[in-house]
Design a protein around this nucleic acid. Sequence first.
DNA 1: CTCCTCTTTTCCGTATGATGGAAACCAAGT
DNA 2: ACTTGGTTTCCATCATACGGAAAAGAGGAG
Lengths: 248, 248
Amino acid sequence: MSVQSVERALDVLEALAEHGGEAGLSEIAARTGLPYGTIHRLLQTLLARGYVRQESDRRYALGGGLVRLGGVAESMVAVWAQPYLARLVELSGETANLAVLEGDFIVYVAQVPSPRRLRMFAEVGRRVLPHSTAVGKVLLAWRPGGDAVTVFERTGMPRRTPNTITDIQSMLAELGQVRSRGYALDLGEEELGVHCLAVPVLDGDRVVAAMSVSGPAERIGALDRGELAEGMRGIARDFAAELSPAAR
Amino acid sequence: MSVQSVERALDVLEALAEHGGEAGLSEIAARTGLPYGTIHRLLQTLLARGYVRQESDRRYALGGGLVRLGGVAESMVAVWAQPYLARLVELSGETANLAVLEGDFIVYVAQVPSPRRLRMFAEVGRRVLPHSTAVGKVLLAWRPGGDAVTVFERTGMPRRTPNTITDIQSMLAELGQVRSRGYALDLGEEELGVHCLAVPVLDGDRVVAAMSVSGPAERIGALDRGELAEGMRGIARDFAAELSPAAR
DNA sequence: CTCCTCTTTTCCGTATGATGGAAACCAAGT
DNA sequence: ACTTGGTTTCCATCATACGGAAAAGAGGAG
């Protein structure tokens, strides 16, 4: 049914990614539980094709080939998302966005703008830090364990507006709340006067993306959050279903 | 030495990417020359792991897993590039950038700013169209055959300034020149008053990235282009050597 | 400088697991 | 209902990946 060596090669790449993109042979062995000889052979193959590179201290790291494939894949996701984002716009009347976590940044990969005259636009491709956005909170709230903490340690939590949450304790509390109520808010924390509401796109219990609607504070404030979030979760679920129909 | 099934799985992924990220089984077979049964089995494996997804019309497409790995890999490249960009700044006195082609967009993945008071800054992560930048020209000039044409067909070539090259014939001539002299210029084609000079980072004869320096027209104009380009090519070569020491 | 330890790389006989041709299946159009 | 083009499944065969263990390197400590 499934090709063992390919699965293992993927295990190796994932182990490498989880180690921050760089690891020694033995660290990979510890993570994957595979014998040294096997890992080494797989790495040689990936190396020859440019999907892994070897540093001077003979540690291994993810290589440029993945950047290429990842880019193509990302542009596809944007296309698939279009109809779902359109539904979000219809539901809320506001601009809808799809964002993913890439490294430590939030990247907006697709958008459908609101039909209103006054509307948000966050150009597709823009990168922002996670702490000041609703999509960022969603993407981190559903991550395993201490992921969020380490991300914030690396990026810091610079103040963007007076409303930005800049201390890690408050943020962790916020993330807990986000998780329990199923959606995240951004009340002018990235830009004053701009509010957002975001929900996760879940594949099983793994978050693969976040969808949000954003617009001027007054209009967003006038909506019934619970109801809106409920509708958005439905759309996010449909989208997730299209992304991985019966995978795993 | 090398694991056959992994190599073939990579062939399949690359074939998919070259087809624009989406293809039927038989199209992949045509490209790779592998038997149907084999490809199908490999695809099932990649499918189960989320690196490929299947559309409702049972065609295959690159999946979300690649976005994740690609993101991690990209953030690594930025780190490795730092010292080389610093050398570029030292050489030119201007801001140095590293950019890659991601889908149809140019993405700036790393930057070291100039020490001058008046300096360029193009925030890392920014996406721009290729036709109006020196890095864009470089990345397309070294691509095989008609790649450049198809990219421009998809993106169009919107006028950014009076200097922007907006017609495809002139652009193809420009790319030929870029290739023959070994570097590309942007003379205020993306933004008036801002000039850039870019060189390719080559792995064998494949472009993996482009490095550029950019600054105010007067200062860039005062430099000896040939000499600067020569120095930059050396740095780009060193960087390429670090990226793939003895690969392929 | 030499020894010792830790990590990476190479080797090779074995049996596991990938292979691919061909047949069944499915969808869509005629 | 039939034909066609593409996709999925099957299975006997043997090429291939496997992994234990030994060799080679790289550092660090004495």
